[in-house]
């Protein structure tokens, strides 16, 4: 909690080094499907968007939601059900999933912002667990089996997304659009108020801001983008299941963001890449993956709190400042 005035200068234009990093990242993402397996990359992109959405809350408003799997998972169910059972084209199914997350975001957000700090985390976790039990009992979610073999029909009627490489570029477009939106939100006057709330909530209230409106809007935006990620993921893995709504999933997105760096633009992307890679290559180790995740949590919290990108940024700053 620093008492320094927020630096508002030159927040609209992207700094030169960030522009360079973004350019390199986009170039790499365009070339990567020719080097790495596209389905793996699409999974990374979906989770990166999920983590960026989560980071919008924890990193820029200081709200720890321990129930973001709710939005990811329920958007996935709605998207999968509408594509498979109702025969919706993918674009509408994905939007339907995101819209579901939007509505759920309003309900959960309005309840959770009634309490602060640690209670906020517990409320979101409890509400997500409630939604998990609904998913377990509701007939349309398919219970333990989930909704399998979601068809990849042509996007907009003419883009053949059954081809992995083609679909990869669609997912990349969705990810970049989501990322750009989050960048815009964070660097807008609205985003400045969010950061003010993070730094000192009572002071922001005394300045005349309706803090709860800002928190709720940020929550709904974050939930909707998490839903967009979840409903896109359905077409990547062609599966929506209980895994997507479980508390472990909420924990995973926290881990991704924490490893990459809370409150950094690129941190969640790096963290998602790290965690998904780890899960893919350690899949044969079964339960030990959970133990390793736990160990990473402990290490990061104890001695590495800025995360990968945060540490690099701090090193860069000290090198240029010295």
């Amino acid at each position: 909690m620093s008492g320094e005035p927020a630096q508002a200068s030159n927040e609209t234009g992207m700094p030169r080094h960030q522009r360079l990093i973004l350019g390199a990242l986009v170039a790499a993402l365009i070339v990567l499907p020719y080097i790495l397996y596209p389905v793996f990359l699409m999974k990374v992109l979906c989770f990166a968007l999920f983590a960026c959405a989560f980071n919008l809350l924890i990193g820029y408003v200081g709200l720890l939601s321990f129930g973001h799997a709710l939005f990811f998972g329920w958007a996935a169910y709605v998207s999968a059900h509408s594509a498979k059972v109702w025969g919706w084209p993918p674009e509408f199914a994905i939007l339907g999933g995101a819209a579901t997350a939007f509505v759920l975001g309003i309900a959960v957000g309005a309840l959770a912002i009634r309490r602060q700090g640690i209670y906020f985390a517990m409320i979101t976790l409890a509400l997500a667990q409630m939604a998990f039990f609904f998913a377990l009992q509701a007939p349309f979610t398919g219970g333990e089996d989930g909704i399998q073999a979601v068809p990849r029909r042509p996007l907009f009627g003419f883009i053949d997304i059954s081809n992995d490489t083609t679909f990869y570029y669609v997912v990349l477009t969705v990810f970049l659009a989501g990322f750009a939106l989050i960048y815009r939100i964070v660097h807008s006057p609205f985003g400045q108020v969010l950061k003010a709330i993070r730094e000192n909530e009572p002071r922001t209230i005394s300045l005349g801001y309706r803090v709860n409106h800002y928190k709720l809007l940020a929550f709904v935006l974050s939930a909707s983008l998490a839903g967009l990620a979840g409903s896109t993921k359905v077409f990547v893995t062609q599966l929506a299941s209980l895994t997507d709504v479980q508390w472990q999933m909420s924990g995973e997105v926290v881990l991704m963001t924490l490893v990459g760096g809370l409150g950094t633009m690129f941190g969640p992307v790096v963290g998602a890449f790290f965690v998904i890679t780890m899960q893919t290559y350690l899949a044969t180790m079964g339960e030990w993956v959970l133990v390793i995740q736990g160990v990473i949590f402990v290490i990061v919290v104890l001695s590495f709190r800025r995360g990968i990108v945060g540490e690099i940024a701090a090193w860069w700053k000290s090198r240029n400042g010295a």
């Binding site: 720890l64 321990f66 640690i118 985390a121 924990g251 926290v254 924490l258 959970l290 133990v291 995740q293 736990g294 160990v295 990473i296 949590f297 402990v298 919290v301 104890l302």
Partner: peptide, 11 residues
Amino acid sequence: LLLTFGIALII
């Protein structure tokens, strides 16, 4: 909260 969550996962 995050640290104790990690410890719970390990145990």
